[in-house]
Design a protein around this nucleic acid. Structure first.
Length: 533
DNA sequence: ACTGCCGGGTA
DNA sequence: TACCCGGCAGT
């Protein structure tokens, strides 16, 4: 499916937590908390909504598993009746062969952690770093609920669900949490099993409420509360569920499937070398921010603007205050707007500069005890508005557009050390060069570029105007690193562009006014035959 | 913005 | 095949 289609169709979900890569786009695992209760039809993807909270897990192109309160996925092996764990299972469909490997952890929030934690028995994420008591409380509450509803057999943790995160990590503030989320996503991306928080409604009411409350409390007490889904706020009408880019998922999926290796390899290489590299879309695409509040179609050109809008209009907060707890982040999504076809309706809006969609700088090394995998590109549009968004730290760090292929500018090069190369089993992808010199990983739509590969590696395909470009997400096979590393580039770049010669060509020598003096090649805009190099 | 020229369209 | 041009990529 065309990611852009999804992007525009989707009400939510363009904001993805933790760079899996814009790819978030590269294989990422994103657990996604839409916190938007809604019924949504997302193409072929079945969407089950029931109750105020909708969890949707998009597994692959056109496939998504969603779990909400009382509905459990029939497919989920590891899904507890309570819907607390969603186990994505591989589907038989060819186009979904990678389904199981990944998902997108959307807004990997600490509130998700209880679930995972419950499954992993505390091995994994912090709930509320700043409040151990609450952490325990939440965990217990959640676990209790889980125990009540999950048959023993299903409660057994599956190996693949294990997300190795060091225990007893020292809380070190926002950065740490953010990094944690990133790390979790990285880990998730390699696991076919996706842990999924069950919707509250499957939990018996008391327990349900209990953990909701805990969540709520945790939310308010934790700076990472942005992640939390305010379960107590039942008044929130249905909100669009964030659909994920299918390509994104596809890439994720590529990452961890143990079987079908050859197939995956083929596919990954296909993604990497056959698909066009996203190029700068010339001035026609803008990033807009759309309010996802139900019945609110507000579209603003700036994230701060939309946040303010949500804060004031929907959340009823003081408009004067710039205070933002980040909750607004949940209620808007970034959309790509084709300015060419944009109606006058938006003409009054100040379009975001295309440059904002450009590659943000590589993450500053803010994060202390975090592995390199935290080199996640911040969404450009987010990064350029640090003040406001920085307050909603996790989301800020983790915002990833589902599809920015068109706007993706040059990929950000991230020097990767050997340790990262090993670690980033979820990210990397080196085409078979295996030089390991450097891996440029862009978590946005820009494809991964592998340095150290002699010769042109990227395949640039001229795309005619009417042609639909392949979503750049496909190039984000970062998850499928293993495969990519093993496989030599399936497709070498066909026409290596001739390096520009030093000699002056006819155009330069004679100028446009004497065009008739040009060699024919020059006249035809071909390689000059007269002044060859 | 300019330049070189590839890729593709048209006659 | 000659001619032309859109558009990419390097400067």
């Amino acid at each position: 499916m065309d990611s852009r289609y999804i992007l525009e169709k989707s009400s939510v979900g363009t904001r993805v937590g933790v760079g899996g890569v814009d790819s978030c786009r590269a294989g990422r695992s994103v657990l996604h908390d839409t916190r938007v209760p809604t019924v949504e039809k997302n193409g072929p993807m079945p969407v089950y909504t029931h109750g105020p909270v909708l969890y949707k897990f998009v597994v692959d192109v056109g496939s998504a598993a969603e779990v909400n309160g009382e509905r459990t996925s029939s497919k989920g092996n590891g899904l507890s009746p309570g819907g607390q764990i969603l186990h994505m299972e591989k589907t038989g469909r060819g186009d979904q062969k990678d389904t199981g490997s990944t998902g997108i952890l959307k807004r990997a929030s600490p509130t998700h952690c209880p679930v995972i934690k419950g499954q992993l028995q505390g091995g994994f994420m912090h709930l509320d770093i700043n409040n151990p008591g609450k952490q325990a409380e939440l965990a217990n509450s959640f676990r209790a609920a889980q125990v009540q509803n999950v048959p023993p057999t299903e409660r057994q943790p599956l190996p693949s669900s294990h997300i190795p995160v060091p225990r007893n990590r020292k809380p070190s503030g926002h950065a740490d949490k953010e990094v944690m989320a990133a790390a979790v996503l990285t880990s998730l991306s390699t696991s076919p099993l996706v842990l999924y928080p069950s919707s509250a409604s499957t939990v018996p009411e008391p327990a349900n409420r209990a953990w909701k409350e805990v969540l709520s409390a945790s939310y308010s007490s934790s700076t990472s509360g942005n992640w939390s889904w305010d379960a107590s706020d039942q008044s929130v009408p249905s909100t669009p569920s964030p659909p994920l880019s299918n390509d994104t998922n596809k890439n994720f999926l590529l990452s961890s499937q143990g079987d079908d290796v050859s197939e995956d390899v083929t596919e990954s290489t296909h993604f990497m070398f056959e698909d066009p590299i996203p190029r700068k879309r010339k001035n026609s695409m803008k990033v807009m921010f759309k309010c996802l509040w139900k019945n609110c179609e507000k579209v603003l050109s700036t994230s701060s603007g939309i946040q303010r809008h949500i804060r004031t209009v929907h959340l009823g907060r003081n408009s004067d205050s710039d205070y933002s707890d980040g909750e607004e982040d949940f209620y808007y999504s970034e959309i790509e707007v084709n300015m060419d076809s944009l109606t006058e309706g938006l003409s009054s809006l100040t379009p975001t500069s295309p440059t904002t969609a450009g590659p943000p700088p590589v993450f500053p090394p803010p994060l202390t005890d975090v592995p390199h995998s935290e080199h996640i590109n911040m969404n450009g549009s987010q990064s350029h508005a640090p003040t406001l968004l920085s307050q909603s730290a996790p989301s800020t760090l983790c915002h990833i557009r589902t599809d920015h292929a068109y706007q993706a500018t040059a990929p950000v090069s991230i020097p990767v050390g050997p340790e990262l190369a090993g670690l980033g089993s979820g990210n990397g992808t080196g085409p078979g060069t295996g030089t390991g010199n450097g891996i440029s990983v862009s978590w946005q739509s820009p494809p991964v570029i592998f340095k150290g590969v002699p010769g042109p590696v990227t395949h640039v395909r001229t795309v005619s105007i009417g042609e639909k470009r392949q979503p750049a997400a496909n190039t984000h096979t970062t998850v499928n690193k293993t495969h990519a590393l093993i496989t030599p580039p399936a497709k070498s770049i066909p026409g290596t562009r001739k390096p520009r010669g030093e000699a002056k060509k006819c155009r330069k020598v004679y100028g446009m006014e004497k065009r008739d003096m040009w060699c024919t090649a020059c006249r035809w805009k071909k390689a000059c035959q007269r002044f060859t190099d």
